[in-house]
Write a protein that binds this DNA or RNA. Structure first.
Lengths: 210, 210
DNA sequence: CGGAAAAGTGGTAGTCACTAACACTAGTGA
DNA sequence: TCACTAGTGTTAGTGACTACCACTTTTCCG
């Protein structure tokens, strides 16, 4: 059992579900090429100093095409097809856990999952995101949206009404705390990050002694 | 004692500290005029659909001047001179409180303070901010920055090392939870909002029963 | 009081993210 | 093989924001 292997994302097109025609294959390759070009250029020059035109040129497409693949300049960096294809948070968890254990379970899964992928687990990418306020904001945004979904699932799991006050407070507190702790980490050893998150959860569960 | 009266912001220029020359007076009036124009137009047409040129025209200045007063289009709405001039969070609190009581104290002060002001307490403004993702993001940003300052002050107040792990977790949790609760409120009765925040703090202090 | 310095303003031109419309090409499915 | 469709490049445009320059007004000081 455990976490299933992430699908390949490198453009070979052996993964997906239904149609693996020439067209589909080409699209995946282009998408990956744009991502790679963006990361390369942004690491060199910084995100703000890199223009969409440059990225497009490097990936050998037009700027228009860039925007057909990614709705914004930030998106090319923060987006992550792997996570996108994942079910919403907490879905598929074994029943009967406490809210805290449920989060622990989800966090562990998340890290395991992304660690196996070239893009999602890419250290340079993570570092890049932390280096630019626009990227930080965009990621925050994405995070928030996921939490919105998570709230409903969590409420259901716990047998509480949707949009339950306690559930909202819980998730807000957990994610807020995690954000504070994960964000300023200089060197993002993945294992260290997981440990920090677990420490946060322990602290919140037992009550913060302040 | 208690909270001091907010300075006037309406352009009469009887408030500030040192120089109340013609120039300074004019600047305040212009600043207020731009704000008013922006709010009026954005409430009518929505924030996204309102251009800086329109706002500038309505306030009878050039677009260039607009950007001399406000660094971005969002800034004209989310910014708040009152809060800007306030000391950082937690400064001036009576000693010896717990972290939770300290936050309660700060929140109460904050609400009292802003309630007395035309701009900071403006309901339309609050509603407008909630209506547009760009404004929400910008406000979040401002909030985050304030919390950064607050962390240091809080650590010092509690006699802990700066950037203490527990302090960071505490503030992250508190603000994250508050965000979740305050944000989706349809009708922002100020007193209701305060009550919600207090409920959040109680919940976090006692431990969330989940 | 008068005149130089400083501060504020408008206009022009330019960059960059992003969108809409159109014509073109290449994979797809019958 | 032949229409159909999806993907692409080009062009033109909008809107936020910046840099620069010339002009006016306030302030400061001898």
């Amino acid at each position: 059992m455990s976490v299933s292997t992430p699908p390949d994302e490198d453009g070979t097109g052996t993964a997906g579900d239904r149609p693996v025609g020439l067209r589909e294959r080409h699209k995946r390759r282009t998408r990956a090429a744009i991502r790679a070009a963006a990361l390369r250029l942004c690491l060199e020059q910084g995100f703000a100093a890199t223009t969409v035109e440059q990225i497009a040129a490097e990936a050998e497409v037009s700027a228009t095409t860039f925007f057909r693949y990614f709705p914004s300049k930030e998106d090319v960096i923060i987006t992550d097809d792997l996570l996108e294809d994942r079910p919403p948070m907490f879905v598929g968890a074994p029943p009967g856990m406490s809210a805290f254990d449920l989060v622990r379970w989800e966090v562990r899964n998340l890290f395991e999952w992304s660690a196996g992928d070239d893009w999602a687990g890419n250290r340079d990418r993570v570092r890049l995101i932390r280096s630019d306020p626009a990227l930080i904001a965009a990621q925050q945004d994405l995070f928030e949206r996921r939490i919105g979904e998570g709230t409903k699932v969590l409420a259901e799991y716990l047998g509480r009404p949707l949009d339950d006050f306690g559930v909202r407070v819980f998730l807000g507190a957990v994610t807020g705390a995690i954000n504070q702790v994960i964000d300023p980490e200089a060197d993002p050893e993945p294992d260290l990050a997981v440990q920090a998150v677990m420490d946060v959860l322990d602290l919140l569960e037992r009550g913060i002694p302040l």
